[in-house]
Nucleic acid binder design. Structure first.
Lengths: 206, 206
DNA sequence: TCAAAATCAGGCCGGGCGGCCTAGAATCGG
DNA sequence: CCGATTCTAGGCCGCCCGGCCTGATTTTGA
């Protein structure tokens, strides 16, 4: 690879197309057979090319898989930032936030499964996980909204930070169920989850 | 191995001791380096023995790892069955259930991590997961308790089955946070979770 | 006591892995 | 148009894996 990685846009047309194609193939393979069985040979076969093409366009398997996860997470992050409503009361914004997050994350099952496999299993040579402490930022957003809600009297007396973690993980828990059970209709459970959270935090339920 | 597997109790003293020792070593190795890097060589080294001892006492790596997960899950199942309170209102029983489950599952971090790694990553040769649909039974228990509570007017109007899934997965979500972040103080969050669930389902909060 | 059975360590084997090399094909730039 | 560059396919390498074999050692049981 001639263009030293890091600066985008300096890549040729073929380079970009190949990277997209390979990332796409890797996503499908990881989602299908899992992280452990996703080899370069399988990915190359799925992409209709050879292993050396992957080696040529990526620094190695690690960079490719990190790219797969990073790509999905970047998309999710951008979509969330865009849909983070400024209007409404804190609880309304939390409801919108939870709904939007669940809706986006369940839109592309293959991408989601691949991301989960990589985030949970990928390790650096020293054993550490590259994708650590990802959702802390989102938890902080929830925590701020809960604090605002408490100040306004809309949210009952509770530990904002602890509750933010619980809300965030209740979402991830539901997504986890969906990840392990294809037949589980997660979208049908989103309203129940939003309602569940609403009643859990609202001071004066109606 | 002479005693055809299946019938327990027919194993010799040495056999039992070795199996316990190897399962213990495998648990620690899987929890430390993850499912993907947990090789027979590493497990044997940790156990202070050689690979062939594992091959002698177990049918293979698959049986060993399934044993590691099964052992933890059996212990959890037995503990839960024992602590499933008969007394109290449905919500009180749900609170007790959630608290007990969280308390037991966080008591042995190493065993829990190994179980999670194996349950999520272990696959049969055909690609299917042996540990599928495990928590459905527990979800059904929660669903029954919610239905009872609704009939008694203690629980608000809600979809019992959907809510049962959400409660179950909110627990697993919190455990997942703990699994990925050693510093996360999960026990400190248990009361907040129980309170969260209580407010989410109770008809007349106070 | 002592042969038979059980248990163990070390080495070896075939296989799949990621990475790399090489020769040639495709593309580009002047 | 053609040399230089980019890109690709296939094969090869060393590594680690799980499984197996062999021969030594320990334990068992009559």
């Amino acid at each position: 690879m001639r263009t030293e990685s890091g600066v985008a846009g300096r890549r040729s047309f073929i380079e970009e197309a190949r990277r997209r194609q390979i990332v796409e193939a890797a996503t499908r393979v990881v989602a299908e057979v899992g992280y452990g069985r996703a080899s370069l040979a399988r990915i190359a076969e799925r992409a209709g090319t050879s292993k050396s093409v992957i080696s040529y366009h990526f620094d190695g398997k690690d960079e490719l898989l990190e790219q797969v996860a990073r790509q999905y997470l970047d998309g999710a992050g951008a979509a969330m930032e865009e849909r983070l409503a400024d209007a409404g009361t804190p609880i309304e914004r939390i409801r919108a936030w939870v709904g939007a997050q669940m809706q986006y994350l369940t839109a592309d099952r293959t991408g989601f499964l691949a991301m989960v496999e990589i985030v949970t299993n990928h390790r650096r040579p020293d054993g550490t996980r590259p994708f650590d402490g990802m959702d802390e930022e989102e938890t902080e957003i929830l925590g701020r909204l809960l604090s605002e809600g408490r100040a306004l009297g809309e949210v009952r007396d509770l530990d904002a930070d602890a509750t933010a973690v619980i809300i965030q993980q209740s979402m991830e828990g539901l997504l986890s169920r969906w990840a392990y059970n294809d037949a589980f209709d997660v979208t049908a459970h989103i309203p129940a989850l939003v309602d569940f959270i609403d009643h859990a935090i609202r001071r004066d339920p109606g």
